[in-house]
């Protein structure tokens, strides 16, 4: 199954609604980078509000996607990480140090605008 990527002006919006398995995550990584390349988007918001579980592999993929998008000139913000997910990640020692985060989609877009200096 593939995760839909929506384009909004200069941004790409991704809302992950299901539990992601490893295959889906890799597919998503490729899809997103393709889309950034095609659309020339300068900002990406990945919303994780409905995600209840993130394991170390998914966390790694998310971290990688952020770095990769950065390389392609698109800023990524993760939004809506649930408390339980945050706690699990910290317990696993995954700090996602270079990843910008925001409370919800709205705040995420504001953050993107700030970072892009629009």
């Amino acid at each position: 199954m593939r995760i839909p990527i929506l384009k909004l002006h200069n941004y790409l919006l991704i809302s992950i609604q299901t539990e992601i398995d490893d295959q889906t995550a890799i597919q998503f990584q490729e899809d997103l980078l393709d889309k950034i390349h095609k659309s020339g988007a300068s900002g990406v918001v990945i919303d994780l509000t409905s995600v209840e579980i993130i394991d170390s592999f998914i966390a790694k993929v998310l971290g990688d996607v952020v770095s990769m998008s950065d390389l392609m000139g698109a800023k990524v913000v993760l939004t809506g990480i649930q408390p339980a997910v945050a706690m699990t990640l910290i317990d696993l020692g995954i700090h996602l140090k270079n990843v910008p985060t925001a409370l919800d989609l709205e705040q995420g877009l504001i953050k993107l605008q700030q970072e892009l200096g629009v």
Binding site: G80, V85, A86, L89, T101, G108
Partner: peptide
């Protein structure tokens, strides 16, 4: 520190 990191993850 852990609490602060977790707070950063949720976007605050």
């Amino acid at each position: 520190i852990q609490a602060a990191e977790a707070v950063r993850l949720i976007g605050a």
